[in-house]
């Protein structure tokens, strides 16, 4: 079973991964975006770890709901409301249970990913974070490691795609040949989940 500490470890591991990879995320965001993805997420997840330490929510749902709210408040770019919605909806779906199982987490994450797709209007294949998240959630029933691998594969598979959402879509065919920064950071989020689980 997964308790609040597990979810705190997930968020802390995500913050560390974003910190480590911030330059790469921003570099990916330079040719097809506005070169702020790494710094925006860094600011957001730094604020997430700070508020989790301060308020110390004691349920899995409480941890993710608070983290999501904090991202919406602090990021300043589109990744704030998108990741904020992902975590907040996932947290709300987990409810107030003190511990949750992996099947419950997989189901809750699917609710979160659906909310992201609704908010941004993106579908798989649009060259967005959805391309990493959907296969990861599908693979979570198997193992955390499988979810991480699926997210990484999904992020890599965005390179030949033409962007159909966000600023990159203004570039049309010129968006082809670049890996999507949002899908890349989503792969970091799933890798951090596997790390929290010790896989």
């Amino acid at each position: 079973m997964l308790d609040a500490d597990f979810f705190r470890r997930w968020m802390t591991a995500t913050a560390a991964a974003v910190e480590r990879e911030a330059e790469r995320l921003t570099a990916l965001d330079s040719p097809i975006g506005d070169a702020d993805h790494g710094s925006n997420l860094q600011r957001g997840f730094t604020a997430v770890t700070a508020i989790l330490e301060k308020e110390a929510p004691d349920t899995p749902g409480g941890v993710l709901t608070l983290a999501g709210r904090q991202l919406i408040s602090t990021v300043g770019g589109a990744s704030g409301p998108l990741y904020g919605t992902l975590l907040r909806r996932t947290g709300k779906a987990l409810g107030e249970a003190p511990e949750v199982g992996v099947p419950e987490l997989a189901e809750a994450l699917r609710t979160g990913v659906d909310a992201v797709m609704q908010l941004g209007g993106a579908a798989p294949g649009d060259k967005t974070m959805v391309d990493a998240l959907v296969p990861a959630v599908d693979a979570l029933g198997e193992s955390f490691a499988a979810a991480r691998a699926a997210a990484e594969e999904g992020a890599g598979a965005t390179t030949p795609l033409q962007a159909r959402k966000g600023r990159a879509s203004y570039l049309g065919e010129r968006s082809i040949g670049h890996q999507d920064p949002g899908a890349t950071s989503s792969a970091l989020l799933m890798a951090a989940l596997a790390e929290a689980a010790g896989e």
Partner: peptide, 14 residues
């Protein structure tokens, strides 16, 4: 555009 739209939508959903 972009994050302005998404942030307002996310706040309304809160």
């Amino acid at each position: 555009l972009g994050s302005a739209v998404l942030t307002v939508k996310a706040l309304l959903a809160e």
